[in-house]
Amino acid sequence: MSHAHAEGNAIESLERTTLEGKNKILGFWVFLGAEVVIFGTLFAAHIGLRNEVNFSVSGADIFSLPIVAIMTALLLTSSMTSVMAIQAMHRHDTKGIAVWLAITVLLALGFLCLEIYEFYHYVHEYGFNIQESPFSTTFYVLVGCHGVHVAVGIIWISLLIGQLFKKGLTVVTAPKIYVASLYWHFIDVVWVFIFTVVYLMGKVG
């Protein structure tokens, strides 16, 4: 879309210039509404069952807040870097988008590796696996569901970086990047609730 570069007051939001783009963005917000209900239901189950430890370990016994703090910092920063990617998109800076998205992916990989290590640690150090108690089941299903969403996001954004190089920033790729960034922020929003409700409240008891 070369005419988008013509004037200084260029179309900033490429992602909304086509009907397909507008549809994708609205559709994605509706999907996020569904995701709110999905995670919310998992949270409700967790709140209901978190005290049922079946004579085994509780959150206060095993949660490692330092690891969680580092994971939070990684994810929060990755959310910020995805914002920077969108800023670059509004400046039509294709290379900038790719760089910021790549950093986002790296931070996310760091988050995921730490989480996998954390789970491994709980299983091997405390025998805390999914069959242990209702608490352990809701913990792994809720936090694991979030982790799966992170993994999907990593694959998705990586593919988008590839597409950016192959096709450039167009009215077709712009909505995809915008929507992926919305997804990424949402993942961070869910994490805010996870570290608050699961880990911090779990530590308090």
Binding site: W29, V30, L32, G33, A34, E35, V36, V37, F39, G40, T41, F43, A44, A45, I47, G48
Partner: peptide, 17 residues
């Protein structure tokens, strides 16, 4: 979408709590 989703979650969480 966010408000409605949040509302449904509120019901779920409040009733479970």
């Amino acid at each position: 979408a966010m408000l409605f989703g949040g509302l449904v979650v509120l019901y779920a969480v409040v009733s479970v709590a």
